[in-house]
Nucleic acid binder design. Structure first.
Lengths: 197, 197
DNA sequence: CAGATAACCGGAGGCGCCTCCGTTTAAACT
DNA sequence: AGTTTAAACGGAGGCGCCTCCGGTTATCTG
C-alpha cells in the first residue's frame, strides 16, 4: 500500500477507537477547566476522576503532564485564532477587533501564574512557540486588514506593532486591577487606531 | 542600596544546637554527593536515609528542594573559590592557574544536566547568581594577577576575557569527549597566556 | 547533680505520581 | 449474529513528597 493515508493535518484524529476518542476529548476538556482554575499543578488524578476515567487512561493518552498542558494550550490558542474569523462575520470590523483583543486578554489572564511551566515547555519545544505566535499573528493580521481596508481604522499600523503593544499586557504586574489596566490599555490602542489621520 | 543585613549568609552558624548542626552538615554533604551522581531529582528520602536522619529533619532544615540545592551549590562554589588560594600557595603561579581552571571544568561538569533547575533557581533568586559569579571572578582575578606580576604569564589579558572564554565551556555540546574538548580549550588558553609577548 | 524547658528529632500518614497488567470492549471478519 | 483480536480501560501498588506532632535531648538554672 502506498501510504495514501487520508491524514487530516492539524486536527488529525489518528484512527482512534470510538471510546478512546471520547475519553481523550473529555480529558482535554476537564483539564482545560482545571488548569484555568487551579494552575498546572492540579492533581492529574483529580482530572481523571472528573473526566470519569481511570488514571491509567489519562497517562496512556498523555504520557507526561507537559503533554497534556501542551494539548490544552494549543487547543485554546486555536480557538482564539478561530474567534477572529467568527467575530469578523458578526460585528463591524473595528468592534470585531476590539472584542478580539479583549478575548486575547482573557487568554493571557488564564496563563498568568503558570508562566514558569509554560516557559519550560516553550524552551524544550520551541516549535510550539513559533506555531502559537504564528496563529495569533495571523488572526490579528486578518482583523487589522479588513478594518483598514473598509476604512474603520488607519492603515499605517503594522501587525507587529499592535502585537507588540498587546503583549506588553503580559508584563502588567499582578494586582486586583490587573484586568482594568489591560482594558484601559486596549481602549487607548483602539482609539488610537480609529483616529484615521 | 541599604543591604546592610548583619547576618553573614556564608557560614553563619546561627546558634544551632550541637546535634542540629551535625545533622545539617551531614545532610549537605550527602546531598552534594547525591546531586552530583544522580542530578537534582534524587529522592530526598534517600538523602535523609543516607545521612542517617529522618525525613522530617531534612525538611526542617531545608523547607524545599530548592533550598537544599542552593546551599549545596553555594558551598561548592565557595570551595572552588577557596581552592584558588590554596593552589596559589602550592604551585608556581601558572600551574596554579591551570589546575584551578581544571577544577572549574569539574565543577561545570557536575552542573550539566541540572541546567534547567539551576536556571529556575537563578531567576527566582538572582542575588545568588550575582554572588556566585563574584566569587569566581575574584578567585580567577587573584590567580591571574599573581601569575602576571611574577612574570609567568602576559599581563594584557583581563579577568573578564578569560572568564568569558572559560564560560564558553558550558556550551560545549554533550558527548563522550566533552571533557577532552574542555581540557584542550584550557590548554590552548594557557599556552596563549604564557606566550608573553 | 537534678529538674525544667525549649529546641530538635523522626516517622507515620495522607496525598499525588506513574507503571504494570489482568479485564473489558470496539470493530473487523466469517 | 457469533467469533476473534487487538486496542483500550482502570485501579492496585510501589514510591516519593511533605506535614504534623508525640517523644527525645542539649542546654540552662538552681
Amino acid at each position: 500500500m502506498a501510504s495514501a493515508e487520508p491524514k487530516t493535518a492539524s486536527t488529525a484524529s489518528t484512527k482512534l477507537r470510538a471510546d478512546a476518542r471520547r475519553n481523550r476529548d473529555k480529558l482535554i476538556e476537564v483539564a482545560a477547566a482545571a488548569f484555568a482554575e487551579n494552575g498546572v499543578e492540579t492533581s492529574l488524578e483529580d482530572i481523571a476522576r472528573q473526566a470519569g476515567v481511570g488514571i491509567g487512561t489519562l497517562y496512556r493518552h498523555f504520557p507526561t503532564r507537559e503533554h497534556l498542558v501542551e494539548v490544552v494550550y494549543r487547543r485554546e490558542l486555536e480557538s482564539l485564532a478561530a474567534a477572529a474569523t467568527e467575530l469578523a462575520g458578526k460585528y463591524p470590523p473595528d468592534l470585531a477587533l476590539e472584542e478580539w483583543t479583549r478575548r486575547f486578554v482573557g487568554y493571557i489572564a488564564a496563563k498568568r501564574g503558570m508562566a514558569n511551566s509554560l516557559r519550560i515547555l516553550m524552551t524544550s519545544n520551541s516549535s510550539l512557540f513559533a506555531e502559537g505566535s504564528g496563529l495569533i499573528r495571523g488572526a490579528l493580521e486578518g482583523l487589522l486588514k479588513t478594518a483598514g481596508e473598509e476604512g474603520y481604522i488607519r492603515t499605517d499600523i503594522e501587525t507587529t506593532d499592535l502585537l507588540q503593544a498587546l503583549s506588553s499586557i503580559y508584563s502588567i504586574p499582578d494586582s486586583p486591577e490587573w484586568r482594568e489596566r489591560a482594558y484601559r490599555l486596549i481602549g487607548l490602542l483602539m482609539d488610537g487606531l480609529r483616529a484615521k489621520k
